[in-house]
Design a protein around this nucleic acid. Structure first.
Lengths: 250, 250
DNA sequence: GAGTGTGAACACGTTCACAGCT
DNA sequence: AGCTGTGAACGTGTTCACACTC
């Protein structure tokens, strides 16, 4: 996942003696959990809770308390020993770290059933991001009103993305046209891409890419099912007691 | 991602003396990549390719060749030194490892716009899994035909899931009812859950849970955007040359 | 007493480099 | 010669345990 070590090259012949460290370097695993903490904290705040301990917040977030404290300590010392964390303040700090309050402009390319679902999905446009445009190639879809926006023609992709200052693009198209549309988004100034296309995409250095592959998720579960099935079968032949393989949460 | 460290207990007071180790233990990180290799290999097969080297397959899959070889070596020695891997055979072996050809029965709970998109999504029902039922609480939705299936009432959830032998459940509902519906699926015999609900779910030991949180994905990208923006700003004040932060792939 | 912040130990995952087979 | 399979080195992420603070 990218190489967030500041503006420094990473190529082979570079001993990288003293890469000037940026003030705060948050590890990727932690970044991936911050949105979860944020959501849980907002929920607590709405229910009038003003203070939480790491243990409480950890349980509600489905992680261990030590991990949670270490994650939060990346952002600074925002807790009070013997007491816990102030909910509102923590929400503010996490939001700051994630770069919310910037209102990043997001565009969705591909208004099939998935694109439509994303456009309507409340909370997909989380606080801090705003879907400002939808694109599609199908002339029948172009011009339709979806989620309060009029679908634009993909022909105008570059011009529109540039004009709207879109930095984050969501790809909800089939595998075949995905790479080409991805390239065009990047050419138009998009530097972060979230793809739902079931194919491997290649992006130039400096562009962040995240891929959510729905069928992959299912196949991973199928693997676990198979393991459980064969374990159960093995246990059945061996011992009368079965179904007791435990697991952690998450 | 659960705790797939074999059939080993994780709870406090459980020494679990001799958890019988199963023949092959595939690390979770590898399991998550197998579906990608599988897709790439099928694509190659359809284009008439019969043999690939680890390097070629690695590039096409967006990983390093050493990683790929190590992943494949978990399944056995299916390559030929000096030559590469036979595409068809590898497809077969990966499919075997993932437990395809079992035709796992999948149910989707929640037929809003996202549930609809999933039901229609070709390839969401990947080979090896089959969506056999849709459920919703809304009486207006119940009875509708979606993706070739008639939407059932959530009232009959337990009975229907049990009767249809559903082991894998997909939750495409809002946060509020998610936990309750998850519990009911588990009570009806579901042992793997894929949730799209923006909330933390708790499942009993022995049940696998994967959560895909769309807004989290966006916020992670927002974080990277912010870093890029501030790096660029810093570089602009420091040196005349900018936009040269390199990055690895993925 | 209660609970945070953190070094130190540990587990997991990735990369390297090369031995060994075809 | 070419490419797989894998031990060994490395880096990242998690867990433990406790010093320190309120």
């Amino acid at each position: 996942m990218s190489t967030p070590t500041g503006p420094r090259a990473v190529h082979a012949a570079d001993p990288d003696p003293a890469a000037r460290e940026h003030p705060r370097e948050v590890p990727p695993a932690t970044v991936a959990r911050l949105p979860v903490y944020l959501r849980v904290l907002r929920g607590l705040g709405e229910r009038g809770v003003t203070t939480v301990s790491s243990e409480e917040l950890a349980v509600a977030s489905g992680v261990g308390s030590a991990k949670l404290r270490k994650d939060l300590s990346c952002l600074g010392s925002y807790g009070t020993r013997g007491v816990g964390y102030e909910v509102d303040y923590l929400v503010h700090q996490i939001g700051r770290e994630l770069g919310l309050s910037q209102g990043w402009h997001v565009a969705i390319v591909g208004v099939g059933s998935l694109g439509r679902a994303l456009a309507n999905h409340s909370g997909f446009a989380a606080r801090g991001t705003e879907v400002v445009a939808l694109f599609d190639v199908d002339p029948d879809v172009v011009g339709q009103r979806v989620g309060g926006l009029v679908v634009r023609s993909a022909a105008a992709l570059e011009a529109d993305l540039d004009e709207l200052r879109v930095r984050i693009g969501v790809l909800a198209v089939p595998a075949a046209p995905a790479q080409e549309l991805c390239d065009r988004m990047v050419a138009a100034g998009v530097t972060s891409v979230l793809s739902f296309a079931p194919t491997e995409l290649h992006v130039p250095a400096g562009v962040d890419l995240r891929t959510v592959d729905l069928s992959t998720e299912l196949l991973v579960l199928a693997y676990h099912e198979q393991r459980k099935a064969s374990s159960a079968a093995a246990a059945r032949t061996a011992a009368p007691r079965c179904t007791d393989l435990l697991e952690g949460a998450r």
